[in-house]
Simulated scan of single mutants.
Amino acid sequence: MTSPPFPATNQTLLLDGPAGALEVAVDLPEPEDARALVVVICHPLPTEGGSMHNKVVTMVARALRELGATTVRFNFRGTGQSEGGFDHGNGEQEDLRAVVDWVRSARAGDALWLAGFSFGSYVSLRATEALQPDALISIAPPVSGRGWDFDAIEVPEVPWLVVQGDADEIVDAQAVYTWVDGLKRKPQLVRMVDTSHFFHRKLIDLRGAIQHEVKAWLPPA
């Protein structure tokens, strides 16, 4: 299978990946809003039902498209139509690299941001040093209790937003705040009151928080 061209309309396609085909969804902004920006978004833990169709992932994509970004969601190996099997965040970094390489090959002049929700934020953060995105968005990063090693993560000098719900029942919110406090270079941190892991009844608030915080990072329209 050869890698397809980057689509000019909203499209779901299969891309060559390190473990076989990767299922990728590309969504474009309204033409009058379009900016030279592509955001690749990583989904939550596939062994717990996470996929590129997760409602937090799709809301992150919507928020960014409304700001003029082209968004690229994809399924990690073993999820949906993506081939292969779960690899505890290691092979998933290679999946992300394959998607990013494809985007950069096709949209070489565009800025590239990485975003991730939960497990997806872990994968995108671990891959950041190698992939050198222009900005980062991390939603509910699972810094404790799941076995993911955040201590070795080296985040480059790029704009970075972390959004965390205070009432998260899966990720320990206080552990996230303590982790952020201990970082040499701190991200912009948004603490969302009375907000669960999956942002139940708070998705519109999440959209607004993202748009407010990242607006200053956008390339010109």
Rank of each mutant, 00 (worst) to 15 (best):
A36C: 04
C42T: 13
N75A: 11
M59I: 12
R62H: 12
M59G: 02
S51K: 10
L67T: 05
T58L: 01
P46D: 06
P44S: 10
R35P: 05
E32P: 00
A36W: 00
L67C: 13
V39Y: 06
G49V: 06
M59S: 10
T58Y: 00
E66M: 12
T71P: 09
R62Y: 11
M52S: 14
L45Q: 13
F74Y: 15
L64Y: 01
T70W: 09
P44T: 10
T58S: 13
C42Y: 00
L67A: 10
S51Q: 13
M52R: 10
M59F: 00
F74T: 02
R65S: 08
G50A: 02
P29S: 08
V72L: 05
V72M: 05
T47C: 05
G50K: 01
F76N: 10
C42Q: 06
A34M: 11
V56T: 11
T71E: 08
T71G: 09
R77A: 08
E66C: 06
G50H: 00
A61I: 05
G68S: 10
A36M: 03
R73D: 01
A34D: 11
I41M: 02
V60C: 09
D33E: 11
V38Y: 13
L37P: 07
C42M: 04
E32M: 10
P46M: 09
V57F: 07
R35V: 03
P29H: 04
V72G: 04
E32A: 15
T47G: 00
A36Y: 00
S51C: 12
E66T: 08
E48N: 13
V72T: 07
R35N: 02
G68F: 11
V57G: 11
T70R: 07
T58E: 07
V56M: 03
A36K: 14
G50V: 03
E48D: 14
V72I: 05
T71Q: 11
N54E: 01
N54G: 00
E48P: 00
A61H: 04
E48A: 14
R77Y: 10
A61S: 15
P46V: 06
F74M: 06
T70L: 10
V57I: 15
L67K: 12
G68C: 12
A63W: 01
F74E: 02
N75G: 12
A63E: 03
I41L: 13
R65L: 09
I41K: 05
S51P: 11
E66I: 01
P31R: 01
A61N: 03
E66R: 15
T71A: 10
L37D: 07
L37C: 03
A63M: 01
N54D: 15
A34F: 02
N54R: 00
V40W: 09
T47R: 12
R62Q: 15
H43P: 07
E48S: 14
A69C: 12
